[in-house]
């Protein structure tokens, strides 16, 4: 396991956090991660995150679900086990709509949820490091990765960017 070190600084208000991030960005300091107790409006824009691809994954999975749902019903009712119910045609499209719709939603939901968990590396037994347990309470944290022993320097940068408390972490 490679030895990593991080420096963290926390804020008590989301506006101060955003100001701090801007200050660090002006000095071209790379931010490893930002952790907050709730989603902060506009943070992903400030941090220039690329828009999530989850919606696309959901759409593809939904289309797949629709195709499977309709195709399977059509096969069952025309090839495998044709039933004459009320004299309706074997390929009874209106009847196939409910199940097709449900499978669309189900597949899309699975894609979104598992896509989210996998891309964020979250799951049962995930061992992500929690640097500060107060983040999930009321602290907004900026994490900077230490390289070439510049921990002291990063800590002072964070303090001048307005952080309330600054700490070094060895992982």
């Amino acid at each position: 396991m490679q030895e990593k070190a991080f420096v963290s600084g926390y804020y008590l208000d989301d506006k101060d956090l955003v100001e701090g991030i801007r200050a660090l960005q002006e000095k071209d300091i790379e931010i490893a991660d930002v952790r907050t107790p709730f989603p902060v409006h506009g943070l992903d824009k400030v941090l220039k995150y690329r828009r999530s691809r989850l919606p696309r994954a959901g759409f593809v999975a939904g289309a797949f679900g629709a195709a499977i749902g309709f195709g399977f019903q059509a096969w069952v009712f025309t090839e495998a086990w044709p039933l004459n119910f009320g004299g309706k045609p074997f390929l009874s499209v209106p009847s196939f709509i409910p199940v097709t719709f449900e499978l669309t939603v189900l597949m899309a939901a699975f894609a979104l949820v598992f896509g989210f968990l996998i891309s964020s590396k979250l799951g049962p037994g995930a061992d992500n490091v929690i640097f500060d347990e107060e983040v999930t309470n009321d602290r907004f944290q900026i994490l900077l990765e230490v390289s070439n022993g510049n921990s002291e320097q990063l800590q002072s940068e964070l303090q001048s960017a307005g952080a309330e408390g600054v700490k070094h972490h060895d992982v």
Binding site: D33, P55, G58, A109
Partner: peptide, 24 residues
């Protein structure tokens, strides 16, 4: 599930929640 509060995760979480809502 190892939740950290990372802004990246929150961004994805919001996106996922909104689409799940659109599906639900």
């Amino acid at each position: 599930f190892g939740w950290t509060g990372s802004a990246r995760h929150w961004a994805r979480h919001e996106s996922m929640s909104l689409i799940l809502a659109g599906l639900a």
